[in-house]
Design a protein around this nucleic acid. Sequence first.
RNA 1: GCAGUUGUAGCUCAGUUGGUUAGAGCGCCGGUCUGUGGAUCCGGAGGUCGGUGGUUCGAGACCACCCAACUGUACCA
Length: 533
Amino acid sequence: MSDKKPKKPQKLRARLPRGLEDRGPAAISATRAMVEKIRAVYERYGFEPVETPAMEYTDALGKFLPDQDRPNEGVFSFHDDDEQWISLRYDLTAPLARYVAENFQNLALPYRSYRAGYVFRNEKPGPGRFRQFMQFDADTVGSASPAADAEMCMMAADTMEALGIPRGQYVVRVNNRKVLDGVLESIGLGGDENAGRRLTVLRAIDKLDKFPVEEVKKLLGPGRWDGGEEGKGDFTKGAGLNDDQAETVLRATSRGFVAGRLNEDGSGGINNLDTVVLLRSCADNKILHEGCDELRAIAELVEASGYGATSTNPDVRVIIDPSVVRGLEYYTGPVFEVELLLETKDEKGRPVRFGSVGGGGRYDGLVSRFRGEPVPATGFSIGVSRLQAALTMLGKLDTKPQPGPVVVTVFGGEIAGYQKMVADLRNSPVDPSRPDGPRIRAELYLGNPKHSLGQQMKYADKRNSPCAIIQGSDEKAAGKIQIKDLIAGAGLTSIEDRAEYLRKQAEAQIEVGEGDLVAEVQKLLARHDVRWG
RNA sequence: GCAGUUGUAGCUCAGUUGGUUAGAGCGCCGGUCUGUGGAUCCGGAGGUCGGUGGUUCGAGACCACCCAACUGUACCA
Protein backbone atom coordinates (compact mmCIF):
# COMPACT_ATOMS: atom_id res chain seq x y z
CA MET A 1 0.00 0.00 0.00
CA SER A 2 2.94 2.24 0.46
CA ASP A 3 3.40 2.47 -3.30
CA LYS A 4 0.27 4.56 -3.82
CA LYS A 5 0.37 6.73 -0.76
CA PRO A 6 1.03 10.23 -2.15
CA LYS A 7 2.89 11.43 0.94
CA LYS A 8 1.12 14.66 1.72
CA PRO A 9 3.25 17.66 2.49
CA GLN A 10 3.50 18.17 6.23
CA LYS A 11 0.90 20.68 7.31
CA LEU A 12 2.08 23.28 9.75
CA ARG A 13 -0.05 23.10 12.81
CA ALA A 14 -1.63 26.45 13.66
CA ARG A 15 -1.42 26.79 17.38
CA LEU A 16 -1.40 29.50 19.96
CA PRO A 17 1.42 29.38 22.47
CA ARG A 18 0.09 28.40 25.85
CA GLY A 19 -0.77 31.10 28.30
CA LEU A 20 -1.63 33.55 25.54
CA GLU A 21 -5.02 34.35 24.12
CA ASP A 22 -6.56 35.58 20.91
CA ARG A 23 -9.19 38.16 21.55
CA GLY A 24 -12.36 38.54 19.51
CA PRO A 25 -14.70 41.49 19.07
CA ALA A 26 -16.67 40.81 22.25
CA ALA A 27 -13.59 40.61 24.47
CA ILE A 28 -12.06 43.66 22.85
CA SER A 29 -15.09 45.81 23.32
CA ALA A 30 -15.46 44.61 26.91
CA THR A 31 -11.85 45.58 27.62
CA ARG A 32 -12.35 48.91 25.96
CA ALA A 33 -15.39 49.60 28.11
CA MET A 34 -13.58 48.56 31.30
CA VAL A 35 -10.55 50.67 30.51
CA GLU A 36 -12.77 53.68 29.86
CA LYS A 37 -14.48 53.33 33.22
CA ILE A 38 -11.23 52.89 35.09
CA ARG A 39 -9.69 55.85 33.30
CA ALA A 40 -12.61 58.07 34.24
CA VAL A 41 -12.11 57.26 37.93
CA TYR A 42 -8.33 57.73 37.83
CA GLU A 43 -8.69 61.09 36.10
CA ARG A 44 -11.27 62.16 38.63
CA TYR A 45 -8.57 61.63 41.25
CA GLY A 46 -6.26 63.95 39.34
CA PHE A 47 -3.97 61.47 37.63
CA GLU A 48 -2.64 62.20 34.14
CA PRO A 49 -1.73 59.68 31.49
CA VAL A 50 1.79 58.64 30.60
CA GLU A 51 2.96 55.66 28.60
CA THR A 52 6.25 53.80 28.49
CA PRO A 53 7.33 51.10 26.01
CA ALA A 54 6.72 47.41 26.50
CA MET A 55 10.43 46.72 27.02
CA GLU A 56 13.22 48.10 29.12
CA TYR A 57 16.84 47.44 29.82
CA THR A 58 16.77 44.55 32.20
CA ASP A 59 18.78 46.32 34.88
CA ALA A 60 16.13 49.04 35.01
CA LEU A 61 13.58 46.38 35.86
CA GLY A 62 15.83 45.18 38.64
CA LYS A 63 15.63 41.60 37.47
CA PHE A 64 19.24 40.65 36.96
CA LEU A 65 20.06 37.62 38.99
CA PRO A 66 22.54 38.73 41.60
CA ASP A 67 25.40 36.35 40.83
CA GLN A 68 24.77 35.24 37.28
CA ASP A 69 25.13 37.22 34.11
CA ARG A 70 21.56 36.78 33.02
CA PRO A 71 18.07 37.97 33.92
CA ASN A 72 15.58 36.13 36.06
CA GLU A 73 13.87 33.35 34.12
CA GLY A 74 10.47 34.78 34.90
CA VAL A 75 11.00 37.66 32.47
CA PHE A 76 11.17 37.36 28.69
CA SER A 77 14.61 38.66 27.83
CA PHE A 78 16.95 38.93 24.87
CA HIS A 79 20.19 40.60 23.85
CA ASP A 80 20.17 44.00 22.20
CA ASP A 81 22.65 44.64 19.30
CA ASP A 82 25.19 45.95 21.72
CA GLU A 83 24.94 42.96 24.02
CA GLN A 84 22.76 44.70 26.55
CA TRP A 85 19.96 42.68 28.08
CA ILE A 86 16.47 43.87 27.25
CA SER A 87 13.33 42.48 28.85
CA LEU A 88 9.62 42.72 28.33
CA ARG A 89 8.11 44.56 31.26
CA TYR A 90 6.53 42.32 33.89
CA ASP A 91 4.64 45.14 35.57
CA LEU A 92 4.05 48.85 35.03
CA THR A 93 5.66 50.06 38.23
CA ALA A 94 9.32 49.43 37.53
CA PRO A 95 9.15 51.17 34.10
CA LEU A 96 7.39 54.11 35.69
CA ALA A 97 10.15 54.40 38.26
CA ARG A 98 12.66 54.56 35.41
CA TYR A 99 10.58 57.19 33.61
CA VAL A 100 10.26 59.36 36.67
CA ALA A 101 13.94 59.10 37.50
CA GLU A 102 14.88 60.02 33.93
CA ASN A 103 12.54 63.01 33.73
CA PHE A 104 12.77 64.06 37.32
CA GLN A 105 13.45 67.78 36.77
CA ASN A 106 10.58 68.26 34.37
CA LEU A 107 7.87 66.66 36.46
CA ALA A 108 5.73 68.52 38.97
CA LEU A 109 6.11 66.63 42.22
CA PRO A 110 4.23 64.87 43.56
CA TYR A 111 3.91 63.30 40.13
CA ARG A 112 0.58 61.59 39.70
CA SER A 113 0.09 59.48 36.58
CA TYR A 114 -1.80 56.51 35.19
CA ARG A 115 -1.28 54.06 32.34
CA ALA A 116 -2.75 50.86 30.96
CA GLY A 117 -0.78 48.29 29.07
CA TYR A 118 0.15 44.69 28.54
CA VAL A 119 2.77 43.12 30.75
CA PHE A 120 4.49 39.78 30.27
CA ARG A 121 5.46 37.02 32.66
CA ASN A 122 7.17 33.81 31.76
CA GLU A 123 5.42 31.66 34.30
CA LYS A 124 3.20 28.64 34.31
CA PRO A 125 -0.21 29.82 33.12
CA GLY A 126 -3.50 28.70 34.62
CA PRO A 127 -7.16 29.59 34.48
CA GLY A 128 -7.33 33.36 34.55
CA ARG A 129 -3.54 33.54 34.53
CA PHE A 130 -1.88 34.49 31.29
CA ARG A 131 1.64 35.15 30.12
CA GLN A 132 0.48 38.40 28.58
CA PHE A 133 -2.11 40.40 30.41
CA MET A 134 -3.26 43.94 30.91
CA GLN A 135 -2.74 46.06 33.95
CA PHE A 136 -4.01 49.53 34.68
CA ASP A 137 -1.89 51.46 37.17
CA ALA A 138 -1.97 54.76 38.98
CA ASP A 139 0.96 56.05 41.00
CA THR A 140 1.84 59.00 43.15
CA VAL A 141 5.57 59.63 43.17
CA GLY A 142 7.12 62.10 45.57
CA SER A 143 4.74 61.96 48.48
CA ALA A 144 5.44 60.12 51.70
CA SER A 145 2.09 61.04 53.18
CA PRO A 146 -0.26 58.25 54.28
CA ALA A 147 -2.90 60.36 52.55
CA ALA A 148 -1.43 59.24 49.24
CA ASP A 149 -1.84 55.61 50.33
CA ALA A 150 -5.32 56.16 51.72
CA GLU A 151 -6.33 57.72 48.44
CA MET A 152 -5.18 54.67 46.51
CA CYS A 153 -7.45 52.51 48.62
CA MET A 154 -10.45 54.76 48.17
CA MET A 155 -9.82 55.02 44.47
CA ALA A 156 -9.63 51.24 44.27
CA ALA A 157 -13.08 51.06 45.86
CA ASP A 158 -14.50 53.69 43.51
CA THR A 159 -13.07 51.84 40.55
CA MET A 160 -14.69 48.56 41.52
CA GLU A 161 -18.04 50.26 41.81
CA ALA A 162 -17.57 52.07 38.52
CA LEU A 163 -17.04 48.65 36.98
CA GLY A 164 -20.38 47.52 38.30
CA ILE A 165 -19.31 45.53 41.33
CA PRO A 166 -21.66 46.55 44.11
CA ARG A 167 -20.45 47.63 47.51
CA GLY A 168 -20.12 44.62 49.76
CA GLN A 169 -19.11 42.31 46.92
CA TYR A 170 -15.54 43.49 46.94
CA VAL A 171 -13.22 44.65 49.65
CA VAL A 172 -9.97 46.60 49.78
CA ARG A 173 -7.66 45.09 52.38
CA VAL A 174 -4.79 47.07 53.80
CA ASN A 175 -1.75 46.09 55.80
CA ASN A 176 1.75 47.42 56.30
CA ARG A 177 5.01 45.65 55.62
CA LYS A 178 6.46 47.22 58.71
CA VAL A 179 4.01 45.35 60.90
CA LEU A 180 5.31 41.93 59.94
CA ASP A 181 8.90 43.18 59.77
CA GLY A 182 8.56 44.41 63.35
CA VAL A 183 7.06 41.18 64.55
CA LEU A 184 9.79 39.17 62.86
CA GLU A 185 12.46 41.36 64.42
CA SER A 186 10.87 40.83 67.82
CA ILE A 187 11.19 37.06 67.49
CA GLY A 188 14.80 37.27 66.43
CA LEU A 189 14.46 37.22 62.65
CA GLY A 190 15.81 40.72 62.08
CA GLY A 191 18.96 41.59 60.20
CA ASP A 192 20.30 40.84 56.74
CA GLU A 193 21.32 37.29 57.60
CA ASN A 194 17.65 36.35 58.03
CA ALA A 195 16.35 37.96 54.83
CA GLY A 196 15.81 34.57 53.22
CA ARG A 197 13.80 33.23 56.12
CA ARG A 198 11.76 36.41 56.28
CA LEU A 199 10.86 35.92 52.63
CA THR A 200 9.83 32.34 53.33
CA VAL A 201 7.60 33.60 56.12
CA LEU A 202 6.03 36.16 53.78
CA ARG A 203 5.26 33.48 51.23
CA ALA A 204 3.78 31.20 53.84
CA ILE A 205 1.51 33.95 55.14
CA ASP A 206 0.48 34.79 51.60
CA LYS A 207 -1.05 31.31 51.44
CA LEU A 208 -3.44 31.83 54.31
CA ASP A 209 -6.30 32.19 51.87
CA LYS A 210 -5.27 29.00 50.06
CA PHE A 211 -4.48 26.57 52.86
CA PRO A 212 -5.88 26.06 56.35
CA VAL A 213 -3.85 27.50 59.21
CA GLU A 214 -2.24 24.14 60.14
CA GLU A 215 -0.73 23.84 56.66
CA VAL A 216 0.62 27.36 56.81
CA LYS A 217 2.07 26.55 60.19
CA LYS A 218 3.99 23.66 58.64
CA LEU A 219 5.42 26.11 56.14
CA LEU A 220 6.48 28.38 58.96
CA GLY A 221 8.06 25.45 60.76
CA PRO A 222 9.90 22.50 59.20
CA GLY A 223 8.11 22.34 55.85
CA ARG A 224 5.24 20.71 54.03
CA TRP A 225 4.56 17.83 51.63
CA ASP A 226 2.17 18.88 48.90
CA GLY A 227 0.90 15.34 48.43
CA GLY A 228 -1.07 15.80 51.65
CA GLU A 229 0.94 13.33 53.71
CA GLU A 230 4.48 12.49 54.68
CA GLY A 231 6.63 11.62 51.69
CA LYS A 232 3.93 12.27 49.09
CA GLY A 233 4.53 14.79 46.34
CA ASP A 234 7.00 17.57 46.64
CA PHE A 235 8.52 18.83 49.87
CA THR A 236 8.51 22.55 50.48
CA LYS A 237 11.12 23.62 52.93
CA GLY A 238 9.73 25.79 55.69
CA ALA A 239 11.04 28.84 57.48
CA GLY A 240 12.24 26.75 60.42
CA LEU A 241 10.47 28.68 63.14
CA ASN A 242 9.77 27.02 66.48
CA ASP A 243 6.22 26.72 67.76
CA ASP A 244 6.28 29.92 69.78
CA GLN A 245 7.67 31.92 66.88
CA ALA A 246 5.17 30.45 64.45
CA GLU A 247 2.32 31.20 66.81
CA THR A 248 3.46 34.79 67.17
CA VAL A 249 3.63 35.25 63.42
CA LEU A 250 0.26 33.65 62.87
CA ARG A 251 -1.28 35.79 65.59
CA ALA A 252 0.10 38.97 64.05
CA THR A 253 -1.22 38.07 60.62
CA SER A 254 -4.51 36.62 61.69
CA ARG A 255 -7.71 37.75 60.12
CA GLY A 256 -9.14 37.10 63.57
CA PHE A 257 -8.26 40.66 64.43
CA VAL A 258 -10.84 41.67 61.86
CA ALA A 259 -13.38 38.92 61.69
CA GLY A 260 -13.54 38.51 65.44
CA ARG A 261 -15.67 41.55 65.76
CA LEU A 262 -18.22 40.51 63.21
CA ASN A 263 -21.34 39.09 64.77
CA GLU A 264 -22.44 35.63 63.72
CA ASP A 265 -25.21 36.98 61.56
CA GLY A 266 -22.76 39.22 59.80
CA SER A 267 -23.89 42.39 61.50
CA GLY A 268 -21.82 44.43 63.86
CA GLY A 269 -19.30 45.72 61.40
CA ILE A 270 -15.62 46.19 61.64
CA ASN A 271 -13.68 48.95 63.28
CA ASN A 272 -10.39 49.61 61.60
CA LEU A 273 -9.07 51.71 64.46
CA ASP A 274 -9.70 48.84 66.89
CA THR A 275 -7.83 46.51 64.58
CA VAL A 276 -4.81 48.79 64.64
CA VAL A 277 -4.85 49.00 68.44
CA LEU A 278 -4.94 45.23 68.75
CA LEU A 279 -2.25 44.81 66.15
CA ARG A 280 -0.03 47.24 67.97
CA SER A 281 -0.12 45.05 71.07
CA CYS A 282 1.38 42.08 69.23
CA ALA A 283 4.89 43.01 70.21
CA ASP A 284 6.80 45.86 71.72
CA ASN A 285 8.78 46.81 68.68
CA LYS A 286 9.65 50.14 67.10
CA ILE A 287 9.13 49.11 63.48
CA LEU A 288 5.83 47.44 64.31
CA HIS A 289 4.60 50.58 66.03
CA GLU A 290 5.68 52.73 63.12
CA GLY A 291 3.69 50.53 60.77
CA CYS A 292 0.68 50.69 63.03
CA ASP A 293 0.91 54.47 63.17
CA GLU A 294 0.76 54.58 59.39
CA LEU A 295 -2.15 52.20 59.34
CA ARG A 296 -3.95 54.30 61.90
CA ALA A 297 -3.44 57.39 59.75
CA ILE A 298 -4.84 55.56 56.73
CA ALA A 299 -7.76 54.27 58.76
CA GLU A 300 -8.60 57.77 59.97
CA LEU A 301 -8.40 59.26 56.50
CA VAL A 302 -10.50 56.53 54.98
CA GLU A 303 -12.95 56.93 57.83
CA ALA A 304 -13.20 60.68 57.38
CA SER A 305 -14.09 60.25 53.73
CA GLY A 306 -16.76 57.69 54.47
CA TYR A 307 -14.92 54.65 53.09
CA GLY A 308 -14.21 53.12 56.47
CA ALA A 309 -15.78 50.14 58.06
CA THR A 310 -17.39 50.82 61.41
CA SER A 311 -20.47 49.72 63.28
CA THR A 312 -22.25 52.80 61.96
CA ASN A 313 -21.23 52.05 58.40
CA PRO A 314 -22.07 48.50 57.39
CA ASP A 315 -20.84 49.00 53.85
CA VAL A 316 -17.38 47.62 54.16
CA ARG A 317 -15.05 49.08 51.60
CA VAL A 318 -11.60 49.44 53.09
CA ILE A 319 -10.46 47.07 55.84
CA ILE A 320 -7.26 46.97 57.81
CA ASP A 321 -6.35 43.30 57.50
CA PRO A 322 -3.06 41.94 58.89
CA SER A 323 -3.19 38.87 56.65
CA VAL A 324 -2.43 40.87 53.52
CA VAL A 325 1.18 40.36 52.53
CA ARG A 326 1.70 40.54 48.76
CA GLY A 327 4.59 38.84 47.08
CA LEU A 328 6.59 41.73 45.75
CA GLU A 329 9.79 42.41 47.56
CA TYR A 330 9.95 46.10 46.72
CA TYR A 331 7.11 47.19 49.01
CA THR A 332 8.30 49.18 51.97
CA GLY A 333 5.18 50.27 53.82
CA PRO A 334 1.43 50.07 53.34
CA VAL A 335 0.26 47.32 50.99
CA PHE A 336 -3.24 46.83 49.68
CA GLU A 337 -5.22 44.31 47.76
CA VAL A 338 -8.66 44.31 46.15
CA GLU A 339 -10.54 41.09 46.48
CA LEU A 340 -13.81 39.99 44.91
CA LEU A 341 -16.04 38.36 47.48
CA LEU A 342 -18.43 36.82 44.97
CA GLU A 343 -18.34 33.10 44.54
CA THR A 344 -19.35 31.32 41.39
CA LYS A 345 -19.21 27.87 39.95
CA ASP A 346 -17.39 26.89 36.81
CA GLU A 347 -18.89 24.65 34.08
CA LYS A 348 -18.22 21.60 36.21
CA GLY A 349 -19.92 23.06 39.23
CA ARG A 350 -16.76 23.58 41.22
CA PRO A 351 -16.53 26.82 43.17
CA VAL A 352 -14.20 29.37 41.66
CA ARG A 353 -12.32 31.91 43.71
CA PHE A 354 -11.11 34.94 41.91
CA GLY A 355 -9.06 36.28 44.74
CA SER A 356 -7.09 39.39 44.17
CA VAL A 357 -7.98 41.45 41.12
CA GLY A 358 -5.78 44.38 42.02
CA GLY A 359 -3.27 45.59 44.50
CA GLY A 360 -0.49 47.92 45.28
CA GLY A 361 1.51 49.57 47.95
CA ARG A 362 4.28 51.91 48.87
CA TYR A 363 7.62 51.41 47.17
CA ASP A 364 9.92 54.06 48.57
CA GLY A 365 13.07 52.41 47.24
CA LEU A 366 12.27 51.98 43.58
CA VAL A 367 12.87 55.46 42.16
CA SER A 368 15.71 56.24 44.48
CA ARG A 369 17.67 53.36 42.97
CA PHE A 370 18.24 55.67 40.02
CA ARG A 371 18.91 58.78 42.07
CA GLY A 372 20.96 59.61 45.10
CA GLU A 373 18.00 60.96 47.02
CA PRO A 374 14.97 59.34 48.62
CA VAL A 375 11.87 59.45 46.43
CA PRO A 376 8.81 58.04 48.18
CA ALA A 377 6.10 56.57 45.99
CA THR A 378 2.89 54.61 46.20
CA GLY A 379 0.74 53.01 43.57
CA PHE A 380 -2.19 50.83 42.72
CA SER A 381 -2.67 48.35 39.91
CA ILE A 382 -5.74 46.65 38.50
CA GLY A 383 -5.36 43.33 36.77
CA VAL A 384 -7.66 44.17 33.88
CA SER A 385 -7.39 40.75 32.24
CA ARG A 386 -8.06 38.80 35.40
CA LEU A 387 -10.89 41.10 36.40
CA GLN A 388 -12.39 40.73 32.96
CA ALA A 389 -12.19 36.95 33.22
CA ALA A 390 -13.94 37.17 36.58
CA LEU A 391 -16.64 39.55 35.41
CA THR A 392 -17.27 37.45 32.33
CA MET A 393 -17.73 34.36 34.46
CA LEU A 394 -20.08 36.31 36.70
CA GLY A 395 -22.10 37.41 33.69
CA LYS A 396 -21.47 41.04 34.54
CA LEU A 397 -19.97 41.89 31.21
CA ASP A 398 -21.94 42.69 28.15
CA THR A 399 -20.88 39.86 25.87
CA LYS A 400 -23.51 40.21 23.20
CA PRO A 401 -21.87 40.88 19.87
CA GLN A 402 -22.05 44.23 18.21
CA PRO A 403 -24.46 44.51 15.31
CA GLY A 404 -22.75 44.01 11.97
CA PRO A 405 -22.88 46.38 9.05
CA VAL A 406 -25.74 46.85 6.64
CA VAL A 407 -24.90 44.47 3.83
CA VAL A 408 -25.57 45.54 0.26
CA THR A 409 -25.97 42.39 -1.79
CA VAL A 410 -24.64 42.04 -5.30
CA PHE A 411 -27.26 40.70 -7.62
CA GLY A 412 -26.38 41.06 -11.27
CA GLY A 413 -25.65 44.18 -13.24
CA GLU A 414 -22.98 46.76 -12.68
CA ILE A 415 -21.26 46.67 -9.33
CA ALA A 416 -20.83 50.45 -9.34
CA GLY A 417 -24.46 51.08 -8.51
CA TYR A 418 -24.22 48.88 -5.41
CA GLN A 419 -21.03 50.56 -4.35
CA LYS A 420 -22.77 53.93 -4.54
CA MET A 421 -25.51 52.72 -2.18
CA VAL A 422 -22.82 51.61 0.27
CA ALA A 423 -21.16 55.01 0.06
CA ASP A 424 -24.47 56.84 0.58
CA LEU A 425 -25.14 54.80 3.69
CA ARG A 426 -21.63 55.25 5.08
CA ASN A 427 -21.88 59.01 4.64
CA SER A 428 -25.17 59.23 6.49
CA PRO A 429 -25.70 59.46 10.24
CA VAL A 430 -27.38 56.63 12.14
CA ASP A 431 -29.71 59.19 13.68
CA PRO A 432 -30.90 61.87 11.20
CA SER A 433 -31.50 64.30 14.07
CA ARG A 434 -27.80 64.12 14.94
CA PRO A 435 -25.98 64.81 11.66
CA ASP A 436 -22.59 64.83 13.39
CA GLY A 437 -23.22 61.60 15.27
CA PRO A 438 -21.96 58.15 14.33
CA ARG A 439 -22.59 57.09 10.77
CA ILE A 440 -24.14 53.98 9.34
CA ARG A 441 -21.85 50.99 9.00
CA ALA A 442 -22.28 49.41 5.60
CA GLU A 443 -20.43 47.15 3.24
CA LEU A 444 -20.68 45.67 -0.21
CA TYR A 445 -20.81 41.90 -0.41
CA LEU A 446 -17.23 41.24 -1.38
CA GLY A 447 -17.45 37.49 -1.75
CA ASN A 448 -17.77 35.72 -5.05
CA PRO A 449 -20.39 37.80 -6.98
CA LYS A 450 -21.77 34.58 -8.42
CA HIS A 451 -22.89 33.53 -4.98
CA SER A 452 -26.61 33.16 -4.73
CA LEU A 453 -28.72 35.56 -2.74
CA GLY A 454 -29.08 32.75 -0.23
CA GLN A 455 -25.36 32.65 0.34
CA GLN A 456 -25.20 36.39 0.66
CA MET A 457 -28.02 36.31 3.21
CA LYS A 458 -26.18 33.65 5.13
CA TYR A 459 -23.18 35.92 5.23
CA ALA A 460 -25.24 38.87 6.45
CA ASP A 461 -26.79 36.62 9.08
CA LYS A 462 -23.40 35.53 10.36
CA ARG A 463 -22.24 39.11 10.45
CA ASN A 464 -25.21 39.87 12.66
CA SER A 465 -26.34 42.54 10.24
CA PRO A 466 -29.50 44.51 11.01
CA CYS A 467 -30.62 44.48 7.38
CA ALA A 468 -29.64 43.61 3.85
CA ILE A 469 -30.13 45.72 0.75
CA ILE A 470 -31.27 43.94 -2.42
CA GLN A 471 -31.67 45.30 -5.91
CA GLY A 472 -32.20 42.82 -8.70
CA SER A 473 -32.97 43.63 -12.33
CA ASP A 474 -36.71 43.97 -11.63
CA GLU A 475 -36.19 46.55 -8.89
CA LYS A 476 -33.53 48.30 -10.90
CA ALA A 477 -35.92 48.76 -13.80
CA ALA A 478 -38.57 50.16 -11.48
CA GLY A 479 -36.14 52.40 -9.59
CA LYS A 480 -36.80 50.49 -6.37
CA ILE A 481 -34.75 48.83 -3.66
CA GLN A 482 -35.61 46.02 -1.26
CA ILE A 483 -34.63 46.40 2.38
CA LYS A 484 -34.74 43.12 4.23
CA ASP A 485 -35.12 43.39 8.00
CA LEU A 486 -32.89 40.62 9.28
CA ILE A 487 -33.64 41.26 12.93
CA ALA A 488 -37.39 40.85 12.46
CA GLY A 489 -36.79 37.88 10.15
CA ALA A 490 -34.67 36.15 12.76
CA GLY A 491 -37.75 35.36 14.82
CA LEU A 492 -39.21 33.05 12.18
CA THR A 493 -37.03 30.01 12.63
CA SER A 494 -39.77 27.94 14.23
CA ILE A 495 -41.75 27.76 10.99
CA GLU A 496 -41.23 24.38 9.41
CA ASP A 497 -42.97 24.78 6.09
CA ARG A 498 -40.66 26.39 3.61
CA ALA A 499 -43.33 28.23 1.62
CA GLU A 500 -44.79 29.67 4.80
CA TYR A 501 -41.34 30.60 6.00
CA LEU A 502 -40.54 32.43 2.79
CA ARG A 503 -43.86 34.25 2.82
CA LYS A 504 -43.22 35.52 6.36
CA GLN A 505 -39.70 36.47 5.39
CA ALA A 506 -41.09 38.55 2.56
CA GLU A 507 -43.20 40.44 5.06
CA ALA A 508 -40.06 41.46 6.90
CA GLN A 509 -38.93 43.15 3.74
CA ILE A 510 -39.97 46.48 2.32
CA GLU A 511 -39.64 47.97 -1.11
CA VAL A 512 -38.67 51.62 -1.28
CA GLY A 513 -37.73 54.12 -3.96
CA GLU A 514 -34.05 54.44 -4.73
CA GLY A 515 -33.98 57.94 -3.23
CA ASP A 516 -35.42 56.75 0.09
CA LEU A 517 -32.78 54.14 0.87
CA VAL A 518 -30.95 56.07 3.54
CA ALA A 519 -34.05 57.39 5.28
CA GLU A 520 -35.66 53.94 5.38
CA VAL A 521 -32.52 52.30 6.73
CA GLN A 522 -32.34 54.97 9.39
CA LYS A 523 -35.93 54.18 10.39
CA LEU A 524 -35.17 50.49 10.57
CA LEU A 525 -32.10 51.08 12.71
CA ALA A 526 -34.11 53.29 15.05
CA ARG A 527 -36.88 50.69 15.27
CA HIS A 528 -34.43 48.04 16.47
CA ASP A 529 -32.35 50.47 18.48
CA VAL A 530 -29.20 49.61 16.55
CA ARG A 531 -26.46 52.11 17.27
CA TRP A 532 -23.07 50.42 17.01
CA GLY A 533 -20.64 50.98 19.88
C1' G B 1 10.60 21.88 38.68
C1' C B 2 7.59 17.75 41.37
C1' A B 3 3.12 14.58 41.45
C1' G B 4 -1.42 12.67 39.44
C1' U B 5 -4.77 12.32 35.20
C1' U B 6 -5.54 12.50 30.01
C1' G B 7 -4.08 12.39 24.54
C1' U B 8 -8.63 9.11 18.21
C1' A B 9 -11.73 14.59 12.70
C1' G B 10 -12.57 21.76 14.03
C1' C B 11 -15.67 20.19 18.86
C1' U B 12 -17.82 16.07 22.01
C1' C B 13 -16.77 11.16 21.97
C1' A B 14 -17.31 5.46 20.14
C1' G B 15 -13.74 1.83 18.62
C1' U B 16 -14.99 -5.74 21.40
C1' U B 17 -9.79 -10.74 24.19
C1' G B 18 -4.81 -7.24 19.48
C1' G B 19 -7.74 -8.80 13.39
C1' U B 20 -9.67 -6.26 6.52
C1' U B 21 -10.32 0.20 4.07
C1' A B 22 -10.66 3.80 11.99
C1' G B 23 -16.52 5.46 12.90
C1' A B 24 -20.85 8.63 14.89
C1' G B 25 -23.13 13.22 16.38
C1' C B 26 -22.44 18.26 16.03
C1' G B 27 -19.84 21.90 13.20
C1' C B 28 -17.76 23.33 8.32
C1' C B 29 -18.09 23.63 2.73
C1' G B 30 -21.17 22.86 -1.66
C1' G B 31 -25.91 21.70 -3.87
C1' U B 32 -31.53 21.24 -3.62
C1' C B 33 -35.96 24.69 -2.58
C1' U B 34 -38.57 30.82 -9.01
C1' G B 35 -34.48 35.78 -6.48
C1' U B 36 -33.84 35.57 0.31
C1' G B 37 -30.94 33.52 6.74
C1' G B 38 -33.94 28.65 9.51
C1' A B 39 -35.78 23.60 8.69
C1' U B 40 -35.50 19.57 5.00
C1' C B 41 -33.08 16.38 1.64
C1' C B 42 -28.45 15.15 -1.20
C1' G B 43 -23.24 15.47 -1.67
C1' G B 44 -18.17 16.83 -0.03
C1' A B 45 -13.75 18.11 2.56
C1' G B 46 -11.36 17.04 6.95
C1' G B 47 -7.30 11.81 10.73
C1' U B 48 1.02 11.38 10.94
C1' C B 49 -5.15 7.42 16.17
C1' G B 50 0.28 12.96 20.44
C1' G B 51 5.68 11.20 18.85
C1' U B 52 9.59 7.52 18.52
C1' G B 53 11.10 2.75 19.28
C1' G B 54 9.72 -2.26 20.74
C1' U B 55 6.57 -7.04 21.24
C1' U B 56 3.56 -9.58 17.36
C1' C B 57 1.85 -12.87 11.30
C1' G B 58 -0.89 -8.38 12.61
C1' A B 59 -0.95 -2.45 17.24
C1' G B 60 -5.56 2.97 17.73
C1' A B 61 -5.41 -0.97 21.65
C1' C B 62 0.17 -4.22 24.84
C1' C B 63 5.44 -2.42 26.68
C1' A B 64 9.40 1.52 27.13
C1' C B 65 10.91 6.34 26.54
C1' C B 66 9.66 11.18 24.93
C1' C B 67 6.14 15.31 24.01
C1' A B 68 1.75 18.09 25.06
C1' A B 69 -2.55 19.42 27.77
C1' C B 70 -5.31 19.47 32.36
C1' U B 71 -5.38 19.48 37.89
C1' G B 72 -2.68 20.15 42.36
C1' U B 73 1.95 21.98 44.23
C1' A B 74 6.46 25.07 43.85
C1' C B 75 8.07 29.73 41.74
C1' C B 76 5.24 34.44 40.68
C1' A B 77 10.02 39.81 40.76
